[in-house]
């Protein structure tokens, strides 16, 4: 039982991070029908930006709770702002010129941007090839015992934070004009344009929203895992993308569901005697779900208008 509780909490935490990243994939796919392979690297940039901020403010060296909280907010702010900028630049200069080109081109450009970000950050002058430790900070409470299981306070904080940002995202999508624009644009570019939606602006905003969520995920992982490196986006991106597809790409609730599912199943398997089969299982699950429900768990395959 305690095994189950602690693994479930770990799985939910990991799943929350996946969900935050998966939302970015799903949002962009919805609007542009583009698999944005550079998204995982935006997440990496978010984590590194938070790392830079934490180092600059000497986080972890001070014991003052107020200073700590302030620095933590600053980390979030810097990470989000830098990812928003990056997201905008990528969309404006790498994807927008290709709006009318075959989709394969945007795919290749996305991969090019991804390589570019990874190799730039691997340069010794920029960040370097090796991982670096995130400055550490003792939280006031140690591990919490819950029905015999150990739960870390960070895990609960991250779970709460993830939930908060998911709700913010939901609010934006469902209750703002921008969200309406995003939904309209996902439905059909030309129809949206006819209804007076500025599709270019909405596409940029979608990228900004996705990048912002990725930045949040980056900060959380930095805090949680105490380690950042320029290639951290590759694996996380691949998993989050898988999660988005499992949930139904283009469907936002699906992205969250897929992320949580992915996190839980990975954690249960990694924490069992079959830990070696973790990734094989995750991808087999992906293919299986696509076979049974081609549109993903919550997605639907709209019949093509003929």
């Amino acid at each position: 039982m305690d095994w189950f509780i602690s693994q479930t909490i770990s799985g939910l935490t990991l799943g929350g991070v996946y969900a935050l990243i998966a939302l970015g994939y799903s949002l962009v796919y919805g609007v542009l029908k583009l698999i944005n392979f550079a998204h995982g690297d935006v997440y990496m940039v978010g984590a590194i930006a938070a790392f830079g901020t934490a180092c600059a403010f000497g986080w972890g060296q001070t014991a003052d709770e107020y200073v700590r909280s302030g620095v933590m907010l600053a980390m979030l702010a810097v990470a989000v702002v830098s990812c928003l900028g990056l997201g905008y630049v990528i969309e404006r200069f790498a994807y927008r010129p290709l709006r009318r080109a075959p989709r394969l081109n945007s795919l290749i450009t996305a991969i090019g941007v991804s390589f570019l970000l990874e190799s730039i950050f691997q340069l010794p002058g920029v960040f370097g090839a090796s991982p670096r430790g995130f400055p550490q900070c003792e939280l006031p409470l140690g591990p919490i015992r819950l029905a015999g299981a150990t739960v870390r306070l960070e895990q609960l904080l991250i779970l709460g934070g993830t939930l908060f940002f998911l709700l913010v995202c939901r609010y934006i999508i469902l209750h703002t004009r921008t969200g309406l624009g995003i939904r309209a644009t996902s439905f059909h570019h030309d129809y949206a344009r006819l209804m007076g939606v500025n599709v270019d602006r909405i596409t940029s905003l979608t990228f900004l929203l996705g990048s912002g969520l990725a930045a949040v995920a980056g900060v959380f992982v930095g805090l949680y895992q105490h380690q950042v490196d320029p290639l951290m986006g590759v694996n996380a991106g691949l998993k989050a993308f898988t999660a988005a597809v499992v949930g139904g790409i283009g469907n936002l609730a699906g992205a969250v569901l897929g992320g949580i599912l992915m996190g839980l199943s990975e954690t249960y398997i990694a924490g069992s005697a079959f830990s070696a089969f973790r990734d094989a299982f995750a991808f087999a699950l992906l293919i299986l779900i696509l076979l049974v429900r081609p549109g993903g768990l919550l997605g639907s395959v709209a019949p093509e208008k003929v």
Partner: peptide
């Protein structure tokens, strides 16, 4: 180290 950067840059530009 600049090899991959060059490669990725050319890729994006040509596209």
């Amino acid at each position: 180290q600049y090899r991959t950067i060059l490669y990725a840059g050319v890729l994006v530009l040509v596209m």
